[in-house]
């Protein structure tokens, strides 16, 4: 494992923990999109179908369990916790899941390396991860209410994506036959979706101001 891959995994982990800790300690999920969190739970559930069948390393298995556990915990908090769920911006978080899930599933059935149940769902999880942040970005635009933690959450997710791209570039030049179009294109698209948000994030950080998105 190279340093970019490890940094990517750690920022990904940090993003999820920041969100979980925020919800757990301040008992509020204001500004957090449940739609995005449910999509991430689906992403991990469909990607890690191999968790008990294909052993790669203790690190991999452990991280998979952490991502599955944390994403489902966040969804549970937002839907079922008697205090947290009251702070959920239900009326603003109106993005429909199936607008993203159905096209990703269809695309995964057309574009895949092998037409099998696991391969199609694995490809589906890559496509869905690429667009899963959209309900969150829409919610931010609507409420324009971004506390520091929500901003940091999205910033860390973006950093994770950027590190993974460096990881792929590194592996492309250091490992023979390392060419994987599907995750690369899905990953590149996902990183681009953060570009706009990053612009405003850095702008507010540079001017030492609270992050505000334009209407």
């Amino acid at each position: 494992m190279n340093i970019f891959r490890f940094a990517g995994d750690m920022t990904h982990l940090a993003s999820v923990l920041v969100l979980l800790l925020k919800i757990h300690t301040i008992k509020s999920c204001a500004g957090v999109s449940l739609k995005t969190q449910e999509l991430y739970a689906i992403v991990f559930a469909t990607r890690y179908l191999d968790i008990f069948t294909d052993f790669i390393s203790l690190y991999n298995t452990f991280m998979k369990l952490v991502f599955l556990g944390s994403s489902f915990s966040i969804v549970w908090y937002m839907r079922s916790h008697k205090i947290v769920r009251r702070s959920y911006d239900k009326d603003q978080d109106t993005f429909r899941h199936y607008f993203l899930i159905v096209p990703c599933l269809l695309l995964a059935m057309i574009i895949n390396e092998k037409f099998t149940f696991r391969e199609v769902l694995w490809t589906f999880s890559l496509f869905l991860e690429a667009v899963a942040i959209l309900p969150q970005l829409v919610l931010l635009q609507r409420t324009r209410n971004i506390d520091n933690l929500t901003g940091q959450y999205i910033f860390l997710l973006g950093a994770y994506r950027a590190f993974y791209i460096f990881n792929w570039i590194y592996r492309y030049f250091t490992e023979p036959h390392y060419v994987h179009w599907i995750p690369w294109i899905a990953g590149l698209l996902q990183t681009l979706l953060y570009g706009d948000f990053f612009y405003y994030y850095f702008h507010s950080w540079k001017n030492n101001k609270k992050l505000q998105l334009p209407a």
Partner: peptide, 10 residues
């Protein structure tokens, strides 16, 4: 070719 290579990523 992918199995064992990309699937070692998360």
């Amino acid at each position: 070719a992918r199995s064992g290579v990309t699937k070692d990523e998360l």
